[in-house]
Design a protein around this nucleic acid. Sequence first.
DNA 1: CTTGACCGGGG
DNA 2: GTGTACGGTCAAG
Length: 803
Amino acid sequence: MEREGHLFDIFYTTEKDEPVINLYIKTDEEVVIARDTDFQPYMYIIPREGKKKDLKRKLEGLKFEEKGDRIKIFSIDEKKKKDLQDEKTVLKAYVKHPRHIPKLKEKIKDWEDIAQISEYDIPFYKRYLIDKQLKPPSKVYVKGVEIETDGEIKKIALEDVEQKDEKDILEPDILAFDLEVVDEKVVMCSFYKKGFNKVLVTYEQDYKEEYVEIVGNEKKLLRRIQNIFRNQDYTVITGYNTDQYDFKVLRDRFDEHGIDFEIGGHDEVRFKRRGRNYAAKVRGRIHIDLYPFVSTVISRTLDSETLDLNSVAEEVIGKSKEDMEWSDIKKSWENKENLDMLASYALKDSKLAHELAENIVPQIFSLSSLIGMTPFDTCRTSYGQLVENYLIKEAAIKNILVPNRPTQYQIKDRRTSGRFTGAFVYEPEKGLYENIALFDFKSLYPTIIVSHNISPDSLEREGCGDELKIEVGDEVYSFCQEEKGFFPEILENLVTERYNIKKEMKELGKKTQAYRNNYNRQNALKILSNAFYGYMGYSSARWYSRESAEATTKLGRDYIKKTIDMAEEMGLEVVYGDTDSVFLSAENIGEKTEEFGKKINSELPGLMELELEGMFKRGFFTYTNKGKGAKKKYALLKNNGELKITGFEYVRRDWSPIAKETQKKVLQQVLERDVEGAYNSVKTVIEKLKKGDIPLEKLKIYTTLTKRPENYDTKAPHVEAAKKAIKKGEKIKPGDTVDYIITNRGKTISEKAQITKYADNYDAEYYIEKQIIPVSERVLKVFGYTTSQLKGEGKQSGLDRFS
DNA sequence: CTTGACCGGGG
DNA sequence: GTGTACGGTCAAG
C-alpha cells in the first residue's frame, strides 16, 4: 500500500538484536509508524597508502567480543570520497547494530594500516534521515504493508520511503500546558488548545469559571493529566521551559505516586541527555519546548534581555498577561483565597504559551525541513549543530567525507590560540544627532564568503592558478578561485533562494498561508546562512577553519571602512558604524541617501549589497566608563515618534523597576531635546527616594538561587537575604528566584538585603547611588552633568554644549 | 589579564 | 545512544 504524510519523528528500536527504524508519519487520517528493518549501520575506514588490500583482508577476518556483544564487519564496500581537497578511496564497513560502531572504532583505531576512521559518531536516526534525504516535518511518500498490532497506532512494514516537496510542511496542531506548583506539589494544571481549555484544580470549592475542573487530590490530578495528554487530538505538546521544569516535576510526582509516566499513549516519557540538560521525549507527539529555541534563536531578534515568557510574548506577538507575584501565588493557595484568580492566571499562562507557539512552531518546522533535523532536535539546537547538520547532509549529497569532531584537547587549543580580530566598530562621538540614515549590508558575511570563495577546501590549495590573497595581520591566506568551495556553493544557494522568496512574497497578501510559509522559509534561510561565519570559528566545529573566519572578518572590516570613507567623501557625517551597519547624518540626508546607495552598490562584487535600513529624526549615542564611544548602546527616535532603544540597562531584570523606569524616561526626554526635563526627572525620583515616597514594589531586585544558601562561598545580597528569610521560617530552595530590597538596617549591602516580604523600609542612599545615578548618569553625563549635580550637590555647568 | 563560579527559564 | 553539546558576566586570583 502507498500513502503520503508528514514525517514528524524518528527513532530506532532493537528487535531480535537488529535495529529497526521507526518513522512517525501523520497522514490525513491518522498517525502511523513506518518500520524499516533494512537500514544498516556503517562507518568509513581510510587505508594508508598502498595498504588497502591488506587492511580489507584484516577487517574481513576481524571478530571480537565486548561485554557479551559479538562484533564483526559483515560487509565492506569500496568508495571514492572527497576529503577536503583530495579524493580518497574509503572502505565503507557495515556492522549489525549501531552500538557496535563505537566499539569497532575503539578496537581498530591504532591499526598501522589505517590512516583515518570517519563518520563513526553520527547517530543512527540522523544517518537515516541524511542517507534517505528526508526532511521532517515535511511530506513523504511511503510504501509498505500494514502489520497486525494490538496497539492503538497503526504500523507499516516499510518497503520504500521518499521525500516529497520539502516545503510541504506539517500544520501544527498545538496543545499547551502549564503547571502551578506549591511546596513541590502540583496544585493546578492548565491546558490550552483551539476548542479546549481547562484548569485542573485539586482544591474543592465553588469556582466561577467553567474551565475549572475539580479533581480532588494530586494523584487524581496526575491521572487526569495523563488522560488529557493521551486522548486529546494534537501533534505538538508545548510549554515554556518544559524540559527543565514542568516535565521534571511531573516525572517526580508520577514517581512519588507510583504511576507510570506514560502520556504518549504507548510509551514512557524519556529524558534524553543533551549536554548538561535533559529533554523530555514523548513518543507519538512532538514535544516542543519553546524556551531553548527562544534563547538560542529568537533572542537575537529581541530587544528584551530577559527571556521570561511574558517579555518574549510581548515582543513576539504583542501580548502579555498580568503577572502574578510568586509570593502571591503561594499565599493564595495556602490560604485558599482568590483561587478563581489563580486559576485564571494558570489558564492565561498556557494560553500565552499557545499563542507564542502558534508563531514560533511554524518557524521551527520550517527550519527543521531546511536542515533535515526533527522538530524535537531543532527546537533544542545550538547554532553549531544547525550548521553542522546541514553540512553533513550536503556532504552526503556531494560525496564529501565528513571531518571528525575535534578532541577535547583540540577544542581547548583552538579556543586559546584561535582568537582573532573581529568586526570593525566606528565609535560614536557622544551626543545627539539629527537626520540619521541607517545603512546596512544585506547578509554581509554570507555574501563575502560567496563573493570571495572563502572556504576550508579553497584555502591554500596546491597548484592553484587563481589565488585570492588576504592579508590578516602578519599572515597571508590564499583562497583558490578556480573551483567553487563547499561553503560558498551552499551559501550562494541559500542566499539566492532567500532573495527569490522575498521577491515572491511581494506578490502575496500578508495574511495568506503562502505568505506565512514563505516568510518562515526565508527566515530559516537567513538564520542558517548567518550562522556559517560563526561556525567557521567555532572551536567544536568539524569544518573548523580559523583562517576562513579571519579572512571573512578582515574583508568585512575593509568593506565597512570603504563605506565610511565614501560617505565622508560625499560630505555625510558618520555617526556610528558596527560590523555591517553605518549611521550617517546630514542636513539634507533624504536627498543624499539614494545617491550614496547607488554609488556604493555599483562597486560591490557579486551578491553583496548595501541597503537603506531606516531613517531617523534623531539619535542619541553615549560612551563607556573609559571615555570611549559606547558600542551597541544608542537610542533612536523614529519620524513617527517611536523609540528604538538598544543596549541600555532599562530592559534588564537585575535592575530595580525604578531604575529602569527612570532610564527610559530620561532617554525619551533627551531624544525630545528636553535635557533639562530629563535632569529634573532624575532629581524628582531622587527626592522621592529620599522622602521615602517610592513604594517597595518599585525597588525589588530579582536574582535566582542556584544552590542552597548555606552552600555559597561568597556573600551576595540575594543569598544573605534568603538566609535571613529561612531563619524566619520561609521555605526557599535552589531554583527559587528571590526578590529583595536593600533596607537601611545593617552595614554592608548583604546585611541590608531583605526579602521583600520582610522589608518595611529601604536604603534610599543605596538606590540613589547604585541604581538611579548609574543608569541616568550613563545618559546625562553626555550633556555635561556630573554625578554630584545629579545628586543635587553641585552647580550645573556646560549644559548647552550639546543641545 | 586570566581563571573559575554562576546564571538563564520555570513555580 | 554511531552518547556526554552554551555563552556571557563578574568577582577573585
